[in-house]
């Protein structure tokens, strides 16, 4: 049997400049308070975040769940480093853009008709953050570091991957609530 391939990057450093550019543009959007720029960051970030969570939770998750441990390991090596940079960037784009947008449009004022839905979205995002940062992201990192070892422990990888896929499914389901809230806000 071929030895496990441990030569891969946990953080895809080549993508870091792209993340930096996105963050700089986000800060410029907030600083200039331009409606289009704020809307762009919120819609693009939120759309991708929601779609990826749903796709991961309901399409990729069950497929990976049915794979053998070596196949999961091979998939994780390629997939998880990308998620490590992509998801926090999308989340920050969505939240920062969304907060400023809500402020710009007056949705955060308690007198505004959208306020209750904005608070509902904060609660849903808060719950998703607890699941993602409390369980999903540490499991992602744990798998990557385990895969870096000369003899990765299949049991540990299986346990952490299971946690990753379950929590991805839960956040995917919660994204349905986000879709309902956001479409309600847009049409009130």
């Amino acid at each position: 049997m071929a030895p496990p391939q441990t030569e891969f990057k946990i953080v895809p450093t080549k993508a870091l400049p792209a993340v930096a550019v996105v963050l700089i543009l986000l800060v410029i959007a907030v600083a200039t308070n331009r409606l289009w720029a704020l809307d762009f960051f919120h819609v693009v970030g939120g759309g991708l975040w929601t779609a990826i969570d749903l796709f991961l939770g309901f399409v990729i998750g069950p497929i990976v769940g049915g794979m053998s441990i070596p196949a999961r390991m091979e998939f994780s090596k390629k997939f998880m480093p990308k998620m490590l940079l992509l998801m926090p960037t999308l989340v920050l784009m969505t939240l920062a853009g969304g907060w400023q947008l809500a402020r710009h449009e007056g949705f955060i004022l308690s007198s505004d008709k959208h306020h209750a839905w904005v608070v509902a979205s904060m609660i849903v995002v808060g719950l998703m953050a607890i699941i993602a940062l409390g369980y999903l992201e540490p499991a992602n990192l744990g798998v990557l570091f385990e895969l870096k070892k000369e003899r990765p422990n299949g049991e540990v990888i299986g346990k952490l991957m299971k946690r990753f896929l379950y929590t991805a499914g839960i956040t995917g389901a919660m994204q349905v609530a986000t879709l309902i809230i956001m479409t309600r806000i847009a049409t009130l």
Binding site: M122, G126, A129, I130
Partner: peptide, 22 residues
């Protein structure tokens, strides 16, 4: 305990943010 900290921090932040600027 870390998850409990995260929950407390987010709960406190959402409570305050949902009342801004009041």
């Amino acid at each position: 305990i870390s998850v409990a900290v995260l929950t407390l921090v987010i709960a406190g932040g959402v409570y305050l943010a949902s009342h801004l600027p009041q």
